[in-house]
């Protein structure tokens, strides 16, 4: 556990040592603010926050998840790919730490970064509370859901980063996987298929909505937990497989 935290702390500091992190967070916050004023076709067909005159943050959360499919792969791409490329992995993995501790630590460091980015969006709910009286359930559920989705994306991104020593490849692979499993619940609608259930169970969006309603359903928690643990485990295996190449 101590090792995991040591590694996580290093990753976390590494993010804030580079201007990229600050730029990414700034872009994310600005784009998120946009939902307060505009509607976004397809994704958020409803009116923007002020037009709808509803005291809810639903549009912001959904937009946030969409942004995450690009923003978080950019954050996670370096986690292992960079170390492989620079050769620093060789020192890290010949320290008395397990591969599992390495991948967990890296993921946790990235989640710390995510938590900072999400915490900075708290300015928006304060605005909502000032303007109306929102339900606390959906607000807390929404934030919880956003963090869960983000943590899952980061796990997927970590996995993609373990496959290659090219950050750009890891970035694209993570975007593809994350957006597929996020928007797959739209497939039946778009194609006019009826097997809605099957598509919904594997969609991040679907499980997010369920949590964002403010009710915690174990099925949703199990979904996120298995994505996170599954991706991290696979990333560990893929690190291990370096030995045999």
């Amino acid at each position: 556990m101590k090792n995991i935290l040591t590694i996580a702390r290093r990753e976390f500091h590494a993010y804030f040592g580079s201007p990229v992190a600050y730029i990414a967070i700034a872009v994310y916050l600005v784009l998120l603010g946009v939902t307060f004023f505009f509607k976004i076709p397809f994704l958020l067909p409803k009116d923007g926050f002020f037009e709808a005159k509803e005291a809810t943050l639903r549009p912001m959360f959904e937009w946030s998840i969409f942004l995450f499919t690009i923003f978080l792969p950019a954050i996670s791409m370096r986690l292992l790919a960079e170390e492989r490329k620079m050769g620093t992995l060789e020192i890290l993995l010949t320290l008395p730490v397990t591969d599992t501790e390495v991948v967990l630590g890296k993921w946790l460091g990235a989640v710390g970064f995510l938590a900072v980015a999400v915490a900075l969006t708290l300015a928006y709910p304060i605005l909502v509370v000032a303007l109306g009286k929102p339900d606390v359930g959906p607000l807390v559920g929404g934030y919880f859901g956003v963090l869960l989705v983000g943590a899952s994306y980061l796990a997927v991104g970590l996995l993609a980063s373990s496959w290659t020593n090219s950050q750009i490849t890891a970035f694209i692979a993570a975007i593809v996987i994350c957006s597929f499993f996020t928007f797959v619940d739209r497939v039946p609608e778009a194609l006019g298929i009826h097997a809605v259930e099957a598509f919904q169970v594997m969609s991040f969006n679907h499980h997010f909505r369920s949590i964002a309603r403010g009710v915690i359903d174990t099925r949703d928690l199990v979904f996120f937990a298995s994505v996170i643990l599954g991706a991290i485990t696979l990333a560990g295996h893929s690190l291990e497989s370096r030995k045999w190449r």
Binding site: K2, T6, R10, A14, G17, G87, T88, E90, I91
Partner: peptide, 25 residues
């Protein structure tokens, strides 16, 4: 172990790096 070409994290200071390795040690 010192690998060939001493691959180290360029963004850390010497002290941070040695403390990091020491902690994991």
């Amino acid at each position: 172990y010192l690998p060939e070409n001493a691959p180290l994290y360029p963004d850390m200071t010497t002290r941070e790096y040695l403390s990091f390795v020491g902690a994991l040690r």
